[in-house]
């Protein structure tokens, strides 16, 4: 359809941090009820937290599921 599809809800399923082959980190928000993927711009300090198995500060509120290279991070599981 040329007129975009009817709006669908955009509810986060999980947020993924992933290191690409060239060593660069990217982060994406995956939505549960549609195929929408949003890019998250990684801020300073987030990667250190991810590598330490902690959730990045900006995700402390709302506690979405965080995955790092396919694995659910420890802190999410604790909750």
């Amino acid at each position: 359809m040329k007129v975009s599809e009817a709006p669908q809800r955009r509810s986060i399923h999980y947020i993924e941090y992933r290191q690409t082959e060239n060593g660069e980190w990217i982060s994406e928000k995956f939505h549960a009820d549609c195929e929408l993927v949003m890019e998250h711009k990684i801020a300073d300090g987030e990667i250190a937290q991810i590598e330490a198995g902690e959730r990045p500060d900006w995700t402390i509120l709302g506690l979405p599921e965080i995955r790092c290279n396919g694995e659910v991070i420890k802190e999410y599981l604790e909750h």
């Binding site: 809800r9 955009r10 509810s11 928000k29 890019e39 402390i60 709302g62 506690l63 909750h79």
Partner: peptide
């Protein structure tokens, strides 16, 4: 709000829990 934000992609919905409600 998520639609208003649109391509900026700074808002998504997230499931509420008692704990996160308290946080909010």
């Amino acid at each position: 709000c998520v639609d208003a934000c649109g391509d900026h992609q700074a808002l998504s919905m997230v499931t509420k829990t008692d704990e996160t409600l308290k946080q909010f």
